[in-house]
Amino acid sequence: MSVAQSTRAGSSTTVKGGRGSPARRRGRMFIPFVGPALAFYTVLFIVPTVIAVWISLHKWAGSGPMQWRGLSNYVALYHDTLFRRSLLNTLELLVIVGVVMFILSFVMSLVLRDMAGKKIARAVIFFPHMINALVFGAVIGFMFNPGGLVNSLLQAIGVNSPPQWLSPDNLFPLIMAAMLFITTGYYTTILMAGVDRIPPYFYEDCAMAGANAWQRLRYVIIPLTWDVFGVCAVLWTISSIKIFEIIWIFGGSNGVGQPPTQSWTTAVYTYATAFGGQSIPAYGAGTAAAVVSLILVAVLVVLLRRAMRRDVIEF
């Protein structure tokens, strides 16, 4: 395989010689170019994050006096079985849905590569991602309610006591399935862009070298799409930890107005704690849960970047 490697994409762009020192020129342009973005970022993200950490050290109802609690909110989270359950659900979404989704997406991107009418197919599988999650909630309700589509079909083939699809204990697996359905097309599209980028002469090379399909996958496709994989993994990690509305839609229509606790994620936990239904809001405890989620995302992304680090291959 004749694959040229360079250590970092940026290093090849350095211009040697020319007018003045490029480093100094770059230094002069740094503030006008980065400044505005940095200012916006500081005002919109960094300052609120710092304030959030500050709030999480207090007991606060959202208005009125704040009562200093130190790290008690975090200690309480550690001992809260419901928070642990929510965290576990979040990680299940991240890992189980993530792994299955990436395998499906990768297989689909390979299948679609050689398929006739792949543009239409790509649009069709991307479609679920554009639809509001509310629609899935309604459709799943229509399909899985006790007298719904699925049970009617099952009855037709002789199943008279079907599972209670929408019971609080079965809701979470159903949510995972729906998440899989919604996101697979999105990541397939990104992976396909990566696979499509591989120049055809590599495949011709493979054919001439007598490589089989597995070898082609192992030595051409995976190495050349690895950075795309890395980006997708980070995107999925970030978005999976923020999963909120689909949980709410699947379980929010019960009498209490909140999804059953069996299906809570950390995002739902944060919301329910901060804006606790009919009770006094607990902004401090809610923000503490949000800060834990933020740390979780940061740690996971760093670990993931480290685990997936490979030299970028240019071609």
């Binding site: 809260d80 419901l82 329910a272 704690t273 009770s279 405890a285």
Partner: peptide, 25 residues
């Protein structure tokens, strides 16, 4: 009144409702 008028932060949603659900089911 609703939930016995209990307003303690998160008591109803996190303590009462989940266990009450199990009793009810």
């Amino acid at each position: 009144s609703q939930d016995g008028g209990i307003l303690y932060p998160g008591y109803t949603t996190k303590v009462l409702d989940p266990i009450d659900d199990q009793l009810f089911f």
